[in-house]
Amino acid sequence: MSGTKEGVTTMRDPDVRNESFFAVVVRKLRRNPIAIVCLVTLIVIAGAAIFAPYVAPADPNRPNLPARLSGPSAEHWFGTDHYGRDVLSRTIHGARVSLTVGIVAVAFGAAIGVVLGLLAGYVGGRVDTIVSRLIDTMLAFPLLLLALTLIVVLGSNVTNVILATGIATIPQFARVVRGSVLSVRELEYVHATRALGARGLRTVVKHVLPNVTAPIIVMATIYTANVIILEANLGFLGFGVQPPEASWGSIVNDGRRYLAQAPWVSVFPSIAITVTVLALNLFGDALRDAMDPRLRS
């Protein structure tokens, strides 16, 4: 992020000329207890996901029919499901799938969305018209239905769920980036850079992109949460990841029919979803506040 050192920071926050933008953000975040709690929570969950095979007490997919639907105990902290599989291990491994889907899908959606948005906003003219129509067309499909249809076309495995939910987020990113670019483009210093003869692409990379970074990061945080929810909703409708592989959403959905006899099958992964999504959202809010120059306290 060396680009932020010149000029741009000045426009954002004239008072902290000597400190890079991200240093400011980090400094502000460190003073925000909610942000720290959320970040720690997310790191713990991500750690569990990454080291799942070492952390999980049992093989998440190994059935043990005699022990089916047994409640939480010393052996199975979160109880067992309808095949006698350990719900704690499944929840830990489920974190892998859910987080991967959330993060990779958003990275994918954001990457394409940002490029489309930059193109539309910066180049303008006919390109803008075409991209905007494309965005409108995609937005006219409800997110869930867009993803669902794509999964029916592609088949439901983790890669396709990522692809489908990722594609579904493209228009959202494109739309926000396009808007930001349009407003940045009107700023005097960009006009000035152009007048000085800087070429289009260079201007975009150097001046426009850093300015839209903040909203993109905030949006990506929140959309990661949204995609985790979206994946769970797909699971509810029967279009989630392939069993026996499990995401949090699909474990919750598996447990739906045992709510009366064995609520633990659904409850624990539900809590995992809620905590993660809550942490992502609150951290996103904190980031937004920290990145907004008008809200310095």
């Binding site: 029916v152 088949g155 392939q242 026996p244």
Partner: peptide
């Protein structure tokens, strides 16, 4: 079906599991 997969894998038959929506 997941139990069929489990039993077959126990004897060394590696299963690529494809549980699809009924229409597909």
């Amino acid at each position: 079906s997941p139990m069929l997969q489990f039993y077959l894998e126990e004897v060394g038959i590696d299963i690529e599991f494809r549980q699809l929506e009924h229409g597909t």
